[in-house]
Simulated scan of single mutants.
Amino acid sequence: MAELSIGAPAPDFDLPRDGGGQVSLSAFAGKPVVLFFYPKDDTSGCTTESLAFTALAPEFQAAGAVVIGMSPDSVKSHDKFIKKHSLGVILAADEDKSVLEAYGVWKEKSMYGKKYMGVERTTVLIGADGHIVRIWEKVKVAGHAEEVLQAVKAL
């Protein structure tokens, strides 16, 4: 499992996305990219986070940034999630978890004493040059999208 660090090149990826087609980091070279990793489509915290990024999507766009959410869910699941909540962000499907592992967010978690593997809610801000500018680990959803937007505007 990788440990990311500020200033390091962000691992590239090419994954299936909502609505069909592919999404890759390299396709957005020259633009800041907000990559938010979340555990599961249509769960309470993930829905709240995705809605918050959607609400601020015009401001991220005005700042020249692209917002991409990523989870191990399928494209079919992403499509249902987007339709149900009218989401306005790209959702990448990393079903084999290779990108989640490359970014170090696929971790052992614990709930009610049971250990299992899952996504640790994390956001990575990637600068226009493809290098990592900031990492938010163990994200608390409330106010998070706004904080990320402020970091993008400060670039």
Rank of each mutant, 00 (worst) to 15 (best):
I82A: 12
V124I: 06
G104P: 14
A154K: 13
A62F: 01
V124A: 02
L91V: 04
S74W: 02
M111I: 11
I90T: 15
D18Y: 04
R121V: 00
A52D: 14
I6K: 14
L4A: 01
D41F: 11
W106C: 10
K83L: 11
A27F: 11
D96Y: 08
A102W: 13
K31L: 09
D73V: 02
L100R: 12
D96C: 07
T48G: 02
C46V: 10
E108W: 05
A52H: 09
D96G: 09
L4Y: 00
S71T: 03
L87V: 08
I6P: 10
A29M: 12
H85Q: 12
A57T: 14
T122D: 00
L56V: 02
S77C: 08
I90V: 15
I132F: 06
A92Q: 13
G104M: 09
G30F: 14
C46M: 07
L15K: 00
D94N: 04
P58R: 02
H78P: 14
V99L: 04
K83H: 14
V34T: 09
E59A: 08
D96T: 12
V99E: 05
G118L: 00
L56R: 03
A154D: 13
A102P: 14
E49D: 10
A10N: 01
L125H: 02
G127W: 05
D73C: 06
G69T: 01
K76Y: 11
A55C: 03
A145N: 09
K83N: 12
S86D: 15
K80F: 06
L91N: 03
L125C: 05
S86Y: 06
P58W: 02
G30H: 15
T47Q: 08
I90P: 13
S74P: 09
A128T: 12
K109T: 08
